[in-house]
């Protein structure tokens, strides 16, 4: 399915200064029983977000009205653990367009790119600066420019470039998806199979 095109965003952010946020926290396993991709945003960070009675926990950032915006800023090693793409669906479903961290787990990175959510890997220093700006002003903004591969801490003007391979960038900018591309390679795949080692 075509994914949403990614354009430049400038937005306030939601800070989550915890390291090693794993996919079981992003979307606990008991919510994986669905057979569609809908509705995962409601259960994003469920066990951190709600108490046992299902009431919002006041001290969790998603329940704090001071913070809003379409970018999640998280501590290093975000998305480790399971391959569940439900984690990316939950983040996309909640309305995030990008996640900023100083380190991402591999599978999560792939999954989020495949769902139009941009993982922006920054240096530890940039991340620390960003958390500081948000601390000082919850309405601090970031600007993410995919075309030029730059992220800016709007409060300080500090800017950094980030990596993304040009194929994936092209997909995000244009809203293309990998499956259409792979389907166009039918003949090459059959030709590969003819010469492959098989027993």
């Amino acid at each position: 399915m075509p994914i949403d095109k990614f354009v430049t965003v400038q937005t306030t952010v939601v800070p989550l200064p915890i390291e090693n946020v794993d996919t079981d926290q992003i979307i606990p396993a008991r919510f994986l029983k669905a057979t569609t991709k809908d509705g995962f945003g409601d259960n994003l960070f469920f066990d951190w977000r709600y108490d046992k009675a299902g009431q919002p926990k006041a001290d969790f950032v998603l329940n704090n009205p001071i913070y809003s915006g379409s970018v999640l800023v998280a501590g290093k090693n975000f998305g480790s653990g399971s391959s569940r793409e439900h984690a990316a669906w939950a983040i996309a479903g909640y309305g995030f367009k990008a996640v900023v961290s100083s380190f991402f787990a591999d599978i999560f990175r792939n999954n989020s790119l495949n769902n139009g959510v941009l993982p922006v890997q920054v240096t530890d220093a940039f991340l620390a600066g960003l958390f500081k700006s948000i601390d000082a002003d919850p309405k601090a903004e970031v600007k993410i420019d995919l075309e030029n591969q730059t992220i800016t801490n709007v409060s300080t003007g500090e800017s950094e470039s980030f990596e993304i391979n040009s194929y994936k960038k092209n997909c995000l900018v244009n809203g293309y998806d990998d499956i259409d591309y792979l389907l166009s390679l039918k003949d090459e795949i059959s030709a590969y199979e003819k010469q492959a080692i098989k027993f």
Partner: peptide
């Protein structure tokens, strides 16, 4: 290695996936 559901769809549809070489 493990893959996400988009990649499961790729593998079902074409027996191939897109992967950067680690």
């Amino acid at each position: 290695f493990g893959i996400g559901t988009s990649e499961v769809e790729m593998a079902l549809a074409t027996q191939c996936i897109m992967q950067p070489k680690p």
